[in-house]
Write a protein that binds this DNA or RNA. Structure first.
Lengths: 115, 115
DNA sequence: TCCAATAGTATCCTTTTGTATACTATACCA
DNA sequence: TGGTATAGTATACAAAAGGATACTATTGGA
């Protein structure tokens, strides 16, 4: 790592990953491949249509995911990770690993208190 | 990576790193060691005292940084990364590396357009 | 004729995040 | 006596993120 946090590249990654839903969307698409809108929605209980649409649009405009519309009725729209989007995987993995240990850390603190 | 993004550990990491300022604060403390409040503030032009205080309090309550008050006048308060906080470094590094390539990617797209 | 299904919009609301500005206590120094 | 420095707090406000609910178009099927 360098010595100048000021003009900081970390922010770019954060800008793309930030939000309550984006990382989860990306995990779904990374792990399960192409998905329809309704499949994503079912896989994320709690998200509203508005939020899912918004997050997908933002990810698409960053070239992280791809959106393909099939001209059918009822409509069919498929989302998938782009090659570029796949480059985010190491970050997601680092977070996932850290998150796992974080859980252990929290449990450790609880155990200490109860001793 | 596993197959169940639902109860997802990635969120814990995001919860700690998210915000306009937290990653920058952590980078400062990781790279430059212990810092006083005023030093951090000077190192982050644009941040207000209220925000800096708030972010530091949150990081402290997550056990990511340590706050030491010296009973002096004028006051002196020092902040430093905890051992636990250092465990976030791989995530920050992955983001930093990705951010660097992201810049190249954006420049690549611009070059393509101008051709 | 009416209902279901899909992938959304539109509208309104609450919560969180961030900004701007003013204010505090206290000791040292001129 | 008045200014400077430090690490804040208080107040008011603006903007962004997120949530709840209702609505749309279209076609095939009962």
């Amino acid at each position: 790592m360098e010595k100048e946090p000021e003009h900081c590249n970390v922010e770019d990654a954060l800008g793309i990953l930030v939000g309550k839903w984006k990382p989860i969307i990306l995990l779904h698409l990374l792990q399960e491949g192409t998905k329809r809108f309704s499949e994503l929605k079912r896989g994320m209980p709690g998200i509203t249509q508005k939020m899912l649409t918004k997050q997908l649009r933002e990810l698409e405009s960053e070239d992280i995911i791809q959106r393909v519309v099939y001209p059918q009725v009822p409509p069919k729209v498929e989302y998938s990770i782009t090659e570029y989007g796949k480059s985010l995987e190491p970050i997601l993995e680092a977070m996932h690993e850290w998150g796992t240990n974080h859980t252990l850390h929290k449990m450790g603190k609880l155990n200490q208190k109860s001793m």
